[in-house]
């Protein structure tokens, strides 16, 4: 069962209207100024049922497939919506897949606004004393889901997010203004809410879906930056002509297009692999490629804008910082390539 591409566009449109209250820039900047604290996703989003996008219809969900999920996030990627909608949908799917009384209760709390849950990743940080796990966009969440293995037995933990620093950590500001919360699952005082091989598989899929979601969002950001750049190349005049008529810039803009086009194709293909044996490999490839590709596109976009591209005046700067954050988190390219190399 799926929503279908028409349904998807309607969904994306309605979501765009819901999120586009005020200009993109104002919203993104306002969100960046928020203190790191649980603020919830907002009633409008919750009431519309977006969290249940990836849940089956028998679980009260919309039955969207991962391809539709990826396309939706691609559409949203260029809108600078600060809400971590993709990760929230993945957390809801993980809770639903685990299907214990504890996860069902948490899913109800989440859907009704009493709790906001996101899923943590291992922190691939080059600092020796950094805690082992990190949560991106932590200012939105009240609890974080993470894995813990005890004698090779898997447990899913729900860990409350606290502001209290443990030593030098846990809260850090990300480039885009979001909060990164660092923690060690064993010390964080979490509650075990599911266990065993089925929960372990659901958790692995959730990690893959997070990579896919970040990759799709990056494609949306890259496309938006390319659109802004070509618009600028058509309008900006120097030497009496639009600078977009110069072959040196045309060819570089064409390369940006080729990069985005290929990456989008890969992400769509990877989405089809969710639920198959190729899932982990496909999502590692998608995230590695989207990260390096979009980083290249962001740099070119700034360069072609000249000095104003380096300023904080344009929407471009917001995409740049958000893009670098998404490229680095949810599986950095190096981390993804390491995973791909271990076969």
């Amino acid at each position: 069962m799926s929503v279908g591409s028409d349904g998807l566009h309607l969904m994306a449109d309605s979501l765009a209207r819901m999120l586009d209250t005020g200009s993109r820039r104002e919203r993104a900047r306002a969100a960046a100024d928020l203190p790191a604290a649980s603020r919830g996703l907002g009633n409008e989003l919750l009431e519309a049922g977006w969290l249940r996008l990836l849940l089956g219809e028998d679980s009260g969900g919309w039955g969207a497939d991962p391809g539709e999920f990826a396309m939706l996030l691609e559409n949203l990627g260029g809108m600078l919506a600060p809400e971590p909608l993709g990760p929230a949908i993945v957390a809801a799917r993980l809770l639903s897949d685990c299907d214990t009384s504890a996860t069902s209760a948490l899913l109800s709390d989440f859907a009704e606004g009493r709790a906001t849950l996101l899923v943590a990743q291992r922190a691939d940080f080059p600092l020796a004393d950094a805690p082992s796990h990190v949560l991106a966009d932590a200012q939105w969440a009240s609890q974080v889901l993470c894995a813990q293995w005890q004698d090779d037995h898997f447990h899913l933990l729900a860990v409350p997010i606290t502001q209290q620093a443990r030593g030098r950590w846990p809260m850090r500001r990300a480039l885009d203004g979001g909060a990164l919360w660092f923690f060690n699952p064993a010390e964080a005082g979490g509650t075990r809410i599911a266990e065993g091989p089925a929960a372990e598989r659901a958790f692995a899929t959730a990690q893959n879906l997070l990579r896919l979601a970040a990759a799709a969002s990056l494609v949306g950001i890259g496309q938006r930056v390319l659109d802004l750049t070509t618009e600028y190349l058509r309008l900006r005049r120097q030497f009496g002509v639009p600078i977009g008529s110069f072959q040196a810039l045309q060819h570089r803009a064409a390369s940006m297009h080729v990069t985005i086009h290929g990456t989008r194709s890969l992400v769509r293909e990877a989405a089809q692999a969710i639920g198959t044996g190729k899932e982990t490999r496909a999502c590692a490839m998608a995230k590695a490629k989207a990260s390096t590709a979009v980083r290249a596109v962001l740099k070119e976009g700034v360069q072609m804008h000249g000095a104003v591209g380096f300023s904080d005046e344009l929407e471009l700067a917001l995409h740049f910082r958000r893009g670098v954050v998404l490229a680095s988190l949810f599986g950095s390219p190096a981390e993804c390539r390491r995973d791909l190399g271990q076969r």
Binding site: T230, R234, V241, S245, Q247, Q250, H251, A253
Partner: peptide, 14 residues
């Protein structure tokens, strides 16, 4: 690349 620039990205012909 010239084709992509002018036909897909709608940049002005040089």
């Amino acid at each position: 690349r010239g084709l992509v620039a002018t036909r897909v990205l709608d940049l002005p012909k040089g």
